[in-house]
Amino acid sequence: MAISADVREFVRSCVPLTGFAEYDLYGTGMADLYLDTARAQVGEEHFAAFLRAWIAAVEEGEGAAALSPTHLEIARAVTYLWYTGAWPRMAPAAHAALRREKANVEFVAAPAAYVEGLVWRTFDGHPAGAKPPGYGTWSVRPPRPRTLAEPRREAGTDAPAEQAAEERAAEEAAVPAAKLPGPLLARGTAPSTVMTADDVPGDEI
């Protein structure tokens, strides 16, 4: 069966969200499932409205800044799905605004979805428990990390030269604690509910 126009549009729209090229997104084999999952989770109409808003925001060069808080949270949830194969717990405010009839809990969309999470590819890894790279490969020095320019080129979202130079400087700066996970309080804490490191007091032994 041919890939539907809806799926093609969905995949195209997810390139600027994920930073991965269409080839990589199709390469997961999960596009249909993720579109279905997103529609089922936030409702067909909400999702169609989100997609329209996102496509317009990208075309106008504004990106996520142009999204409403609820649409921003949907954008995050869809990206989380591509990166991990799981639908996350959404911000309760967005959950309420969408009047979701689903429990607001993280779940894995399908066993094969976990395996195709893109997060592993951000550091040239492979999912734990699948796509094994072969005996002894864990001894090999990992490849140097990608610069921002490389995924930009692949995704076709090149930045202007002066902006790129600024970003290079920013890349080398320390990572803000707000972008890092804090400790799991309990082993059962779902990854999307782990507090960020900036919400956790530091250690001082």
Binding site: D124, P133, G134, Y135, G136, T137, S139, V140, R141, P142, P143, R144, R146, E150
Partner: peptide, 15 residues
């Protein structure tokens, strides 16, 4: 013993 520790990977390539 097999030890590949002297090798480095390239982006998208094992060795």
């Amino acid at each position: 013993p097999v030890d590949l520790g002297a090798l480095a990977a390239a982006p998208g390539r094992r060795f």
